[in-house]
Design a protein around this nucleic acid. Sequence first.
DNA 1: ATACATACC
DNA 2: TACTGGTATGTAT
Length: 861
Amino acid sequence: MENGDGSAKEENLLSRIALNDNKAGMEGLDRDKINRIIMEASKGSRFYENELKKEQQVNQRIKKMMLQKAQITEQQLQKAQTQVEKMVSELERSRDLSRVIVHVDMDAFYAAVEMRDCPELKDKPMAVGSMSMLSTSNYHARKYGVRAAMPGFIAKKLCPGLVIVPHNFDKYRAVSEEIREIFAEYDPNFQPMSLDEAYLDFTDHLEQRQSWPESSRTHCYRSRSNIPADKQMEPQQKEEGTDLSPVLFEDSLSSSEGDAGGPFELFGTSVEEAVREMRFHIEQKTTLTASAGIAPNMMLAKVCSDKNKPNGQYRLPPSREAVMDFIQKLPVRKVCGIGKVTEKLLNALGITTCSDLSKQMALLSLLFSETSWHHFIQISLGLSSTHIPRHEERKSMSTERTFKELSKPEEQFSLCRELCEDLAEDLRKEALKGKTVTLKLKNVNFEVKTRAQTLPYAVATAEDIFAVAKDLLKMEIENESAPPLRLRLMGVRISAFVSSDDKTPTQKSIISFLQAGKTDCSRPSQMMHQMPEEGNICDHSIQTSLLVTDPPVQNGEKQNKVFWRSKQRHTGEETQQSFFQRAHAKRLQLQAAKTSPQDEGCGEDVPLITSNNGAESLKQANTNDCTVQDFSEDELTLLVQPHASTSGCCAPTEALTCPVCFRKVKTTDLNVFNRHIDSCLSDVARKEDEVSDAESDLGPENDHLKSTVVPKQEKQCDVKKEESTISGELESCGVLPQEGQQSLKNNLVSVIKVDSKPVALQQESSHSKSPVLTCPVCQRTQDTDNLAVFNHHVDLCLNQEVLHELRGHTAFSGKPSADSGHPLPRQASKGKSKRRDTPSSPPSKKAKSLGLCNTIDKFFR
DNA sequence: ATACATACC
DNA sequence: TACTGGTATGTAT
């Protein structure tokens, strides 16, 4: 592919806009003419401008690379060369040619399906997609330069007669199912890469095939039994020489020998025959053709499948010689994973083919990252995976939408909510929950931004996702340097899924926290061991996560259930855990040896209090065995437990472990449990003070309580020996007397302490199914009843305050990542570093309403 | 952990 | 008029 070096300059500037003709069916086109039309249609558009910008960035990268190259000494190169050679010989030793890997790829899949079902299209240039974007085109259209990933309106300019057919994904999925059934016959572990493409390992099939009788390898034409009714309605035959028919290519399979000698065809036992047979099945079943590549590994198979496309196959013999020969002239761009940017980088070094690649490996090893040049070296040797990896667990899920300009915050939030709902629905289908929520925005200039936040627990509901996403969005709206934020796309992604074996939430409720010995609910194996019996419990009912740690010195009121977490890094759960492990290491170990009840599913949340006092005490308390920064700066967040309705959906057999006495309390009633802990703490305090009061404040419930305590093997005296330590630690860790602890029963109360001063109280009836919480910083109500989510909202608000102050008072001398003058990154990183810096800045005093609050407020109730 | 870029279909 | 959507991964900070 000699890229017309005459127009090298033009080409250089337009490599990402100009026609990409490295696909099948695009040979011998009038590239110049096509590019002229594409340019004409693109020039001046925002899209084009952005592409130019990106192009410049790539050019910058190239410049940098060339500079680097210029500084490489002969010595360095020599050294690298020996390293490379060493690696080459190692890799060479590991070469495995024993597997037979096949890559199958349907020809112009969507287009072919549409043509099959609408014969009028067969002779026309057509494409599937819309005026905005095409997914694929038929071979007819490709002659005009019309190809996948080209917008329809440009395609129309290239080919005014182009027929654009909208997507019909259901149909494609159905066909995909059909071909996958066939794939499975040759390799039950085949790996689909998309609806129309798959890798298969033919090795086992071939072994068996050798002993198959001819009868098993003889197949009948047009056994259309599996073809759905709508397809049968249309008894099209294999074409009569429609030379341009993209669906039906004249080939051996379709030749009409069937009529004469009987409608049968015998396939041999070789790989080629087996693959030909598979393609035959595909065509018989779907009336669509596929191409295939046969090679000793995946990368080669993929390249091979492209070689004789459409409706062809190519086999690369499993010999080192054949492979190396094949590789030499192969343009690097053909290799999966090398796209237009990498190609351009390599081209700049004079590398276009894989043989160039091997020649320059030493240099490449000095200019590229390790992963990159390792990839390159593999390519240059024609090596890649010889076994097809099992389909891995998905790592993320997202939904995004492009629209006309959207500039009104209300509409942006509204859309954001919609996306979250859609995403939540998708998550539900796969029963997934993730910890990281990412918002993606593309403005009308096609500049893309992503903003992510990772929670200490996994979320799945639209509300919870939205609670995060909307804050991220708000941040972007408010930080937009040239308001309003004018969007053309928004997307929401969720990732960091909890381990698939463990579909329970990672947001450990207090219940799971209290389950003895449990350390990580995202580790399934551990869980399995620890919870051998038991099904899961409730989903929504346990109203709270709480840890009851009423200070011993407290006045009779023992109702306040206080929990703390470190705000920093938002790893509250683990921090809580590790703290208690430190505090009671010995006992925890003992506990851990014992089996605990199963995890508990849900855990609504709890309002929070932040307290600098707590943070400081904690620092003091832990200077020995934990670094200050573990809990640093940030105020601790204290969760106040409302004695809210604990609608009991939990099995009554549950037992919870008291964090004070570490005995199991046979109850799931959190009120009961709280009282137990209260009394434990009171006990401790009393003993500590050596004031042996009578059991004064144990009400009738406590009798009940006592009877539910599961006796432990540990000697009571052992427990007591450590009690003073325990209470001391608890106290110094922010489990302190609280103000405003009066009868919180049946109320949701959140107290925010900023600078040791309670700032805001919010009361809501806990009877309402989804309590509305009001952020004490921004004073806005939050539409989540998940208090952990709420906590994060508050965190964000606090951060933002700081941000605003920084913006207002100082000229924010942030080190905006010294980015080399790219408009977008600079802007983006500014916001980012501000945000990042925030956690270590002292939280500001008082919430003030921000410019957009009213608008947004209105929108959010 | 976050942001952005690249790649593939 | 109009330049996608979904997922994974690499690179850089």
